[in-house]
Design a protein around this nucleic acid. Structure first.
Lengths: 137, 137
DNA sequence: ATAAACCCTATCATTTTTATAGACTTTATA
DNA sequence: TATAAAGTCTATAAAAATGATAGGGTTTAT
């Protein structure tokens, strides 16, 4: 399951996607619209900004806005950013690799082999579904 | 990522699959082979038993054994049992459905729609990969 | 009778996630 | 140029989930 962080991020991105005609959107507006804590959402939007997905404008009249096309924001990117690895095991993660303590030899581990396949097929899904898919339904 | 519980379960199932010639296998042997806590593993094997995946024999000379064919033990079953939902959001879970608090209307929520698609495609993968795939590599 | 081995429930420790707090900086505008 | 609005940043606290341990109970081969 996705963490609330990622879930909130998706709601925020959706909201921003639906308000692309406006220059900026307030954290407060998104938070209120979904009943999310303003301060919690603040941290999330900041992370999305640092990742190059959102832009922001400070000061009075400021706010957040999408800096990328919805079609260029795949679910995989959002999930990795806020939840970490997409792989089911650390020993098959592309971005967060770590060996598994209970595995004696990765090279001959059947679990490892199968999980690599699962990872690749899962990535195909999550890289192809984008914010655009969420917006167009 | 999978919890350690699920990861250990997969290792235990793999071990049991490799020792199908023996009548029973001791918890202790599996635990030692992978450096897992005996007691923790005990709980896991018990759950696998209650789920109808393993059988056991009590008393001296007892132990655990696979009660199903490896090809009939899909990853989806093991993951659901020990980790819970495969869906990324509670509002699209087939087995553990719950509404999402921050979603005003599921029927018109684009996130919901896309996550249903992700769930279905993910299930296709996890229902088709079985213990057999792990054993044969 | 005894020892081996699984069965069951409760509890504790650790880690991760979720949420909050508050001071700081930037900027529009009256 | 003072003020209020709005994002930035770091720290910490609260809650939940996960991982691990403990110990007594029951079954069974010998």
């Amino acid at each position: 399951m996705l963490s609330k962080k990622t879930k909130y991020a998706l709601h925020a991105l959706t909201y921003l996607g639906k308000h692309r005609d406006e220059k900026t959107v307030l954290i407060q507006d998104i938070a209120e619209d979904h009943g999310i804590s303003h301060k919690f959402l603040e941290n999330i939007l900041l992370e999305l900004k640092k990742a190059g997905i959102l832009g922001s404008k400070k000061g009075k009249g400021g706010g957040y806005y999408l800096i990328k096309e919805p079609k260029d924001i795949p679910l995989s990117k959002v999930i990795r950013l806020l939840d970490g690895p997409i792989a089911l095991l650390p020993c098959v993660s592309l971005n967060y690799y770590e060996p598994c303590a209970e595995c004696k030899d990765e090279a001959t581990c059947g679990i490892n082999k199968v999980m690599i396949q699962v990872r690749d097929e899962t990535l195909k899904i999550l890289e192809n579904k984008t914010l655009e898919d969420i917006l167009k339904t």
